[in-house]
Amino acid sequence: MKRNKYDLKKICAGVFGFCLIYGILIILIAWKQIQASQIGRGAVYGFVLLMVILAGYMMHLLQCDKTGKPSKGLYLIHTVEKYQFLIEQLVSRDFKIKYKRSVLGVFWSFLNPLLMMVVQYMVFSNLMRFQQDHYSIYLLTGIVMFSGFNDCCNQALRAIIGNASLITKVYVPKYIYPITKVLSASINLVLSMVPLLLVTLIYGLGNADHLYLTWAVLLIPIALVLLIIFTIGMGFLLSSLMVFFHDVEFLWGVLSTMWMYATPIIYPISILEGADNLLSKVTLKVIRVNPLYHYIEFMRSIIISGCSPALREYVICAAWSFGMLAFGAFVFKKTQDKFILYI
C-alpha cells in the first residue's frame, strides 16, 4: 500500500507555520484586548513557550521518523493518514443524513439556536429577572455551547451500538466511530457560531450599553477546539459504557439535564455568590469544578467582555479537555476488545 501520502516534514512545517501565524495574528490584532485583560504580557511569554515546545516535539518526531523509532505522535499521523478518507466519509454521511429529508436542510443549524434563544429569552426575561448585563447574549452563548455539547454526547452515545452491523463484519479501528460522531455533530456547533455572532452584532447596534464584537473573536476557535476535545473524551466514555449497560442512555438523559442546571446558562452565577444557605454554597462549589462552566465563561468573556479570558482559564479548560480525552480513551481502550461479545 502507499505509505507516504503525507510528507512528515511538510506537515510539521504546516502545523508549526499555522500556529505561529495564528498566534501572531491574535497578538497583533487583539493586543489592546489582551493588554486590557488579566493576562497582559503573559500571553506573549505563554505563546513563545508553546511554540518552543511544539518545535521541539516536531524535531523529535522527524528524528523518530528518520531512525524508524516508534513514537505515539508518528503513529497518530499514520493512522490519520490511513483512515482520513473513511473519517471524511463517515462524517459526511452523518451530516447528510441529519438533514436529508428536511426542506430547509443545513439552514436548521442556524435557525435552531435562534429559535431556542427566542423561546428562552421570552420565558426568562419576563418570568425571572436576573441582574446580568446583556442578558440575551449571555443566555444565547450558554445555550449554543451547552446544546452543542449535549448534541455531540447524544450522538456519540450510540456510536458503537449503532454501528454494530459494521463492527461485527469489517475490521476498522473502533475509536473511529465515536470520533466521527462527535465531529459530525460538532459541525453544527461550529455553524451555530454564525447566528450567535450575528445576533451579537445586531444587538450591539441597537443597544446603548455598547456591546461590540472585538478582535477577541479570533479566540473563538480555541474555545471550540477545547470543547470538542472534551466532548470526544466524553464520547469515548459514553459509547463504551453504553455497550455494556444500555441503561446509560436513560441515565445520561437525566444526567445531562442535571448538568445543564448545574451550569450557569440561564442564571448568572452572581445569584449564588450572594446567597448564604448551605445549598447555594454547595452548588457554587459544584459549578466551580464544572468544566462546562469554564468553557462557557471562556466564550462569554470573548463575546460579551470582548477580551481574552484570564490565563488561568486557558489552563483549566485545556486540563479538562485533555484529561477527559485521556480518561475516555483509557476506558475505551480497556474495553474495546469486548465490544463484539456484547453488541
Binding site: 454521511r93 443524513i97 461485527t168 463484519k169 469489517v170
Partner: peptide, 13 residues
C-alpha cells in the same frame, strides 16, 4: 473480508 455483503450501507444515501 466479505463476511456479509453491504453491511456498511446506509439506506438514506
Amino acid at each position: 473480508p466479505m463476511l456479509e455483503l453491504g453491511s456498511g450501507f446506509d439506506y438514506d444515501l
